[in-house]
């Protein structure tokens, strides 16, 4: 019973996390959410009786891919000057305009 509940939580959380990865404003937050998505995915593999895939997903899908994205984000931010901050400023500007 408790395992079925666990399954339901996974089934609902996985698409929600996937949506959150693509919907968050901050790209850094998106990468962190993607890493947590990978960890939940490896839980799903365990529930689906695929321990080999769970091991590989935990090590590669969550660990190495997250590290790759973070290092690429580091390089991109170094080259796109203050990209994240520009987005936030625009957001603030939009909020100010709405208030006016």
């Amino acid at each position: 019973m408790i395992l079925i509940l666990f399954d339901f939580v996974l089934i609902i959380t996985l698409p929600l996390l996937g949506w959150a990865v693509l919907a968050t404003e901050d790209i850094f937050k998106a990468v962190v959410l993607f890493v947590s998505f990978g960890l939940l995915m490896s839980l799903a593999w365990v529930r689906l009786n695929a321990p080999d895939v769970a091991l590989a997903e935990a090590a590669i899908g969550a660990g190495v891919t997250g590290a790759l994205f973070l290092s690429a984000l580091n390089k991109l931010e170094r080259s796109v000057k203050h990209e994240r901050r520009i987005n936030r400023d625009e957001e603030k500007e939009a909020i100010n305009e709405r208030e006016i």
Partner: peptide, 15 residues
């Protein structure tokens, strides 16, 4: 539109 977001999206599709 962001490239990193696109690559993340491809990874989600793969999952």
């Amino acid at each position: 539109s962001h490239q990193l977001r696109k690559i993340l999206a491809v990874n989600l599709m793969a999952s």
